[in-house]
Each structure stands twice: as structure tokens, then as C-alpha cells.
Amino acid sequence: MILKGALGVLLTLVIIAAFALPITPQPQSWLEFPLIPGLEEKARIIFFHVPTAWLSVMAFLTSMVFGIRYLRKRDMLDDIRSSSAAGLGLLFCILATATGAVWAKFNWGSFWNWDPRETSIFVLLLIYGAYFSLRSAIEVEEKRATLSSVYSIIAAVTVPFFVFIMPRIMTGLHPGAKGDPDGAGPVIEFKMSPNMRVVFFASLIAFTLLFVWMFTLRVRAARLESHLQAKG
């Protein structure tokens, strides 16, 4: 209860801070963001886009962990958890892709240009799509749970290869990527001023709490559904 209230206040504050604080070339006070060359007002996306991308990865890992737990314990509840996490992951993945594409249109000139980050989020979307088409193809519950768990584990072990492949094939445009002229390393470390970082991490925490809340709601609803089905 307290956590839900805190989430409500936190994300409201994050939204207000992310939009209302002015961006100036020479920040004078704690309440002004520094101007990042090449990003300007568009830098504000970081408070919303990055948390959604982070959640779409975290949701996938959550889904995989519950998948492994299902394979070990054969508890249908773990499969419900696994698929609920994947469902939310798909939602956040679509949000991250859409917000990123809009931002790319105005920063790079086109909605999509196969930048390494764009390619990797595309792969993540494909995996989520494949995961759900596999689930919808199987009718027997136990079989569906086993096969989708196995698939998410296989996907999770092959995806990290992109970390090594991407830099060999293309140079990135994404802020923080190697091709970014203003230095390497993630944006979070290099270009964010301390006050931006506070808002950013507050947003990350708020989004994670939102994910946990939505996740428990989905699991509880799915559990009720299976109780009702068991009763007939």
C-alpha cells in the first residue's frame, strides 16, 4: 500500500522534473539541466525511453528465471509468472521501440536505420513474438510451459553474442555507442550531470516498481482464472 502510494508520487515527480526543468548551456542552479550538444531538448527522452528498454530486458530475464524454476519444480504457478513477465516485457519492448523510433526520426533523420541498438531491440521483439507464437500453438498446458521455458533459455544464451558481433559489423549512432563523436561509454556515465542522474535513477526505480506492480496484478488475475477453471 505504501509502495503503491510512493510509486504514484515518485513517477509524478519524475515526469514533472523531466519536463519542467529548463535546459540551459550554463546551468546556474541545481534545478537546471546542462545542454548536451546534438541532443538539446531531445535529451529528455532518456528519462522515459531508457527505463522502458531496461524493463524489456529485465522482464525477459524474469521470464527466463521463472522458466528455469518451472523446469525444476513443475509448478504451474511458475509458468503463469513466466508468461506474465514475458507479456509485460513485450509491452515495454514495443514502447521502447516506438519511443526510440520517434526520437531517431528527429535526431538521425529516419525512423529506422539499423543502428546496433535498434537491431538488438528488434531481435528482442522477434524473440518475444516467437515465444508467444510458440505458446499459442500448444494446447496442453504442461507441454506449453515446458517448451516455452526451454525456448526462452535457448534465446537467452544466444542473445549475448550480439555484444561481440555488433561492434565488428557496424558503427553505432546511438548516444553512448562507439561511433558517438563525443566519447565512448554509456550516456549515463559521461554526459549526465548529477541532477539528471538523480531524475534518471528515480525514473528507473519508479518504472521498475510499476513493472513489479503490473506483474503481481497479472499473476493474481491469472491465478484466479486457473482457480475458476479448476472448479469447472
Binding site: L7, G8, L11, T12, I15, I16, F19, A20, E41
Partner: peptide, 17 residues
């Protein structure tokens, strides 16, 4: 005009909440 965007985002968030 940025504040208009902020109000819209706040509206969406409060509705969702």
C-alpha cells in the same frame, strides 16, 4: 509548449495509475 506535453504525459500516467 513543452508544458503542454508534460500535462498530457501526466494525464496519461494518472489515468493509468
Amino acid at each position: 509548449q513543452l508544458y503542454i506535453v508534460m500535462i498530457i504525459v501526466l494525464g496519461i500516467w494518472l489515468g493509468l495509475y
